[in-house]
Amino acid sequence: MEVTRRQFIQISSTTAAGLAVSGLGFDLVPVKAHAQMLKTRYAKETTTICPYCAVGCGAIVHTSKRGDGRVINIEGDPDHVINRGSLCSKGAALAQLVENEERVTTPMYRAAYSGEWKKVSWDWALSEIAQRVKETRDSTFQYKNSNGQTVNRTVGIASVGSAALDNEECWIYQALMRAIGLVYIEHQARI
């Protein structure tokens, strides 16, 4: 990644201003953060593309290099030729999508007729799913259709999604689903 050309606005005599403020001789700890040091100063910078609409705006993600390594700020990428640093309200709120305490962070399972979720391990969840895929495929697989033509398809499973996947994820996803034999494959483009 290269972030080449930041279009900083020209600010004259900012240093003087800083000195003037700190030289007043009384406590200027403001109500909210008015610190002269940017909160993003010691953060790792990565570029990203906004995950909402398909304009494809660029943003810069500031991730803390200390502590938990989480996002401390996301704002528009000034070098992105489409949005040039701008974002809409959803894009401006991106940090709250990532650092959100309502995100689910561990696999969960709801058993048949159960009224609740329970936390499970990845290995257990994926093994169980693989087993159900195999059972369902093996029991609903059609070698031939009613005309006797070879169709080699799994009609007992459907899959929807996703425009929320990256291109590379989309490709391996559809390859897997088609290899399993699914024909009911649909996603957001249809609705």
Binding site: I49, G56, V98, T105, Y109, E128
Partner: peptide, 27 residues
């Protein structure tokens, strides 16, 4: 829920900024 047979597996996914890859915009 007591009448619904469906087993559901929820798999938690990473947010876009937590992974690497490409997406294609409308253009």
């Amino acid at each position: 829920p007591a009448k619904i047979k469906t087993e559901v597996f929820f798999l938690p996914a990473a947010v876009s900024v937590e992974k690497e890859g490409s997406i294609t915009n409308s253009g």
